[in-house]
Design a protein around this nucleic acid. Sequence first.
DNA 1: GCTTACGGTAAGCAATAACTTACCTTCTGT
DNA 2: ACAGAAGGTAAGTTATTGCTTACCGTAAGC
Lengths: 107, 107
Amino acid sequence: MAYATAIESLADPTRRRIFERLRLGPAPVGVIARGLPVSRPAVSQHLKVLREAGLVVDQARGTRRVYSIDPAGLAELRAWLDQFWTEALTSFKAEVESAPRGPRRKA
Amino acid sequence: MAYATAIESLADPTRRRIFERLRLGPAPVGVIARGLPVSRPAVSQHLKVLREAGLVVDQARGTRRVYSIDPAGLAELRAWLDQFWTEALTSFKAEVESAPRGPRRKA
DNA sequence: GCTTACGGTAAGCAATAACTTACCTTCTGT
DNA sequence: ACAGAAGGTAAGTTATTGCTTACCGTAAGC
């Protein structure tokens, strides 16, 4: 059920930017915030959400707190998506091939 | 850039339930709504969002409108996630192995 | 030991969005 | 042709949430 919090976390544009920043490598809060148009506390709050979703991990380094991507949440999300994958492909193909009648949209 | 609308669409619990219902096979709006605790118009609105995100397609069948999963949006989402996959695994492994100092959380 | 830097938390505000009811259009069957 | 069913759209309400500023704890360096 943890895929839910993961996907909900990544729905926010700012959190996606944070997450994508971490894809380049681990970084402390201040550095992450410097590259974004929001305040440092906002970034802290976002990182908390991402951490609780299992998408990032943090590590104390003196007074800094270095964040990096946690594959755990990513794996959950991927697993959930894959549930749809084969199923969607087969049923989609069947639909398209069998029922070509009726307008698809008004105009 | 379409992965953004896809992930934002699936962030909503009700839309996820709709999407998961469609995993079982195509269904008209009324049938989908009957299995959910929200009104039919709400389902219509959700389906519109999912359609614009490329996650579902609809097909007119007389007065019904049958919805089914569209693999397109799913593919975009998967591709975006995969960008993190290898990168995250390697950098995560490197982090864990190299820096075992400092408490990870306060208590 | 004191100052400074870094970052998490609290409180408050404003914008978004998920729902509702009401309405209108369109297709079907008699 | 008309009655009814199915569903998309409009307008309005309410809850959520992402942001801000202010504050506090803690580790590092002189």
